[in-house]
Amino acid sequence: MSQPLDPFSGFSAFLAAAQAGSFTAAAARLGVSPAAVSQAVKALEARVGTPLFIRTTRRVGLTEAGAALFARAAPAASEMTAALEAASALGSEPSGLLRLTVPRMAVPLVIEPAIGVLRQTYPKVAVEIAIEDATVDLTARGFDAGIRIGEYIEPGMVAVRLTRDITWSVIASPAYLAAHGEPQEPEDLTGHEAIRYRFPRSGTIYRWEFERDGKALSVDPRGSLIVNDSALLVSWARAGLGLAYVADITVEAELAAGTLVRVLEPFLPKTPGLFLYFPQRAQTQPKLRAFIDLAKQVLRPQH
């Protein structure tokens, strides 16, 4: 009598390749060869009876059947992983790969101070950081947790505060203000050069938000420079190329040193700061609990 086929054979290779968009990257994540990933996927395709990937020389993409399978399999795989980790959580030492998606602004504020301490304290925890400002589906992308500004966290997630609230700021270099003057009202921005931010996913350009007499207003300032990276936004402002709209916690050192100056302060709104967020089921993972506890300890002065 022949042995029944394992229904889950090839699924780890399929999920890793679908998430990474590459057999080579999937192989690195799984610790096997690209050929092993390719063979596992081919065997799964043979069982399913239809191609799951469109292969090119540079990248692999999902077919319609592959996308449908991934949409259903990824959440199920995440649930299975969480169940296994929860089963071994009691008394276990933090270990495994901790995958985090973080915005650019969180790198110096959270990642740089916290990850070094995490690695020293729990050397069995490996870390992968994906830097992207766009909103991310944690389960579909295989992340354990994410960091985002509080107002952008999707409902139903557990959220842990990492920083104090943010006061948004219009900044410029002293040289720019000496040459062009200081705007006194949000409407004065029409006479200035603005460095504008384009959202990576939607492609829209951010409208600068203000408050006057308790009412919200927004301005779409003119400007010859557009960027989707917040670090470059600050760098160009520091170089005197125009005004920029940023979170105050990202430019505290520059403001204290006087290399950047804040303008239009009476009109600037405050929003929640940075939070670590994750699904309810994920919080039992020792590796994530270790990161949460250490982050709270290391970042406490910033709350």
Rank of each mutant, 00 (worst) to 15 (best):
M1E: 13
Q3H: 15
S12T: 01
A13N: 01
F14G: 00
A17Q: 00
A20H: 00
S22N: 13
S22A: 08
R29A: 04
R29T: 00
L30H: 05
V32L: 09
K42W: 01
K42V: 15
E45T: 02
E45V: 01
A46C: 07
V48Y: 07
V48A: 09
G49W: 03
L52S: 01
I54G: 04
T56A: 05
E64F: 13
A65M: 00
A67P: 06
A68R: 02
L69F: 02
F70T: 01
A71E: 00
A71V: 02
A73R: 01
A74R: 03
S78Q: 13
S78K: 08
T81L: 14
A82P: 11
L84W: 01
E85T: 15
A87G: 15
S88P: 10
L90C: 14
S92H: 09
P94R: 00
G96S: 12
G96N: 10
L97V: 11
L98G: 12
L100P: 09
T101L: 06
A106L: 12
A106K: 08
V110R: 10
A114Y: 06
Q120I: 10
T121N: 02
Y122M: 05
P123D: 06
A126R: 11
I129C: 09
A130N: 08
T135Y: 09
D137V: 09
A140Q: 10
A145V: 09
A145L: 13
I147M: 08
G150M: 12
E151S: 12
I153T: 09
G156E: 10
G156S: 10
R161F: 13
S169Q: 07
S169P: 04
V170E: 12
S173L: 08
Y176S: 05
Y176K: 05
H180A: 04
H180E: 11
E182K: 13
P183H: 01
P186K: 02
P186D: 02
L189H: 08
L189D: 07
T190W: 14
T190G: 15
E193T: 02
A194N: 07
A194F: 09
F199P: 08
F199S: 15
P200Y: 01
R201W: 07
T204W: 10
I205E: 11
R207C: 01
E209I: 12
E209N: 14
F210R: 03
E211F: 04
A216G: 15
L217F: 06
V219L: 03
D220S: 10
G223W: 04
I226W: 14
V227H: 10
N228G: 15
N228L: 06
D229A: 10
V234W: 08
R238C: 11
G242Y: 06
L243R: 12
A244D: 13
Y245A: 07
Y245S: 13
A247C: 05
D248I: 04
I249E: 09
T250R: 05
T250I: 03
T250D: 02
T250Q: 06
V251T: 03
E252P: 13
A253I: 15
E254L: 11
A256R: 15
T259N: 08
L260P: 12
V261C: 08
R262D: 10
V263P: 04
P266D: 06
F267G: 03
F267N: 02
F267C: 03
K270W: 04
F275G: 05
L276G: 08
L276V: 14
F278D: 02
F278Y: 10
R281T: 04
A282T: 14
A282G: 12
A282K: 15
T284Y: 13
R289A: 07
L294M: 06
A295W: 09
R300Y: 08
R300P: 12
P301E: 02
